[in-house]
């Protein structure tokens, strides 16, 4: 009983916090989650973040910081990898979603595009897109409309619709993966490292489409990226993860102009790479200790 009231008190506190940091009611909010893999490996040590409706939020950090783990806790893909959210809560549109199955979450409008694309290699591009509509029990005509919409945003996929996804280029596979998520008519896409292994030009192309989808379709994005500068150019807001903790957050423009972000991610510092943990004044309010 007492733990329950405690939890609500913490929730209320975080929510108030959210209002002050992002200045809008959070659409997706992650409150103080702790994630453990295989019952013993503690990976996230109290991560909190918010995504306001209709915004693009970037989740930044080095290899192994816990970006993918954060996204997978939200989409509930974690359980399939023997991971578990052991503390904290996740809410979407004010509703607890951390106990839902992936299927239920997709139906609610939250879709993850996994790191490394994960296209169905032996299915054609079009079949890949169609699997994205699996959760929708609607007439074929409606699915066909969604397909047209995806082809409108990704004209290249229309040309390659009949090829096996495994034989298309990396950029086309990334587009297929995003298009596939789009087929579910999501309200929120969790996009994990869209730039991975792609030429700068293709990366720009994909981010332009993300911006377009955000503007025209009203899809909110939470995108994990190592490519900090590109991500911050397209995002509204950013969170920086390090070692399973949020060490910094702010409006994208501020972060992009921040000397320490530049130093850390572009390696401009004369003394070698620094850790944010060394930069004392950036240590975030210790929410994870609450």
């Amino acid at each position: 009983m007492s733990t329950a009231s405690n939890a609500t008190a913490t929730d209320a506190a975080t929510r108030k916090d959210a209002v002050t940091t992002v200045a809008t009611m959070p659409y997706l909010s992650v409150n103080n989650i702790e994630v453990i893999y295989d019952h013993v490996i503690l990976v996230l040590k109290g991560v909190s973040l918010e995504v306001p409706e209709g915004k693009v939020v970037a989740l930044l950090g080095a290899n192994g910081a816990g970006k993918s783990t954060t996204l997978k806790s939200i989409s509930n893909l974690l359980r399939a990898e023997r991971g578990e959210v052991t503390k904290g809560t996740i809410e979407f549109k004010g509703q607890r979603v951390d106990k839902l199955t992936v299927n239920q979450l997709v139906r609610m409008g939250v879709c993850q595009v996994m790191e490394g694309r994960h296209c169905f290699q032996h299915l054609t591009v079009e079949e890949n897109l169609l699997t994205g509509a699996f959760t929708r029990n609607v007439p074929r005509a409606e699915i066909a409309l969604s397909l047209d919409k995806v082809y409108h945003y990704f004209p290249r996929l229309k040309q390659r619709r009949g090829s096996l996804a495994g034989y298309t280029s990396g950029g086309e596979q990334q587009m297929t993966a995003v298009g596939r998520a789009l087929m579910a008519q999501p309200k929120m896409i969790l996009l994990d490292e869209p730039s991975m292994g792609l030429a700068p030009q293709i990366v720009e192309e994909i981010f332009e489409i993300v911006r377009d989808l955000n503007g025209k379709e009203g899809v909110s994005f939470l995108l994990a990226e190592q490519n900090t500068m590109v991500a911050l150019r397209y995002a509204d807001y950013g969170f920086v993860l390090e070692n399973g903790r949020v060490v910094m957050d702010g409006a994208a423009k501020e972060l992009a102009g921040n000397e320490d972000v530049k130093e850390f991610y572009l390696g401009l510092s004369p003394g070698g790479r620094k850790s944010f943990r060394d930069v004392k004044h950036y240590r975030r309010r210790k929410r994870w200790l609450s």
């Binding site: 989409s75 893909l77 399939a80 992936v102 299927n103 979450l105 997709v106 139906r107 879709c111 993850q112 595009v113 996994m114 994960h118 296209c119 169905f120 699997t131 994205g132 699996f134 959760t135 596939r180 998520a181 579910a184």
Partner: peptide, 8 residues
């Protein structure tokens, strides 16, 4: 994994 992710 990908199948799971699209809600299958």
């Amino acid at each position: 994994q990908a199948a799971l992710a699209v809600g299958i």
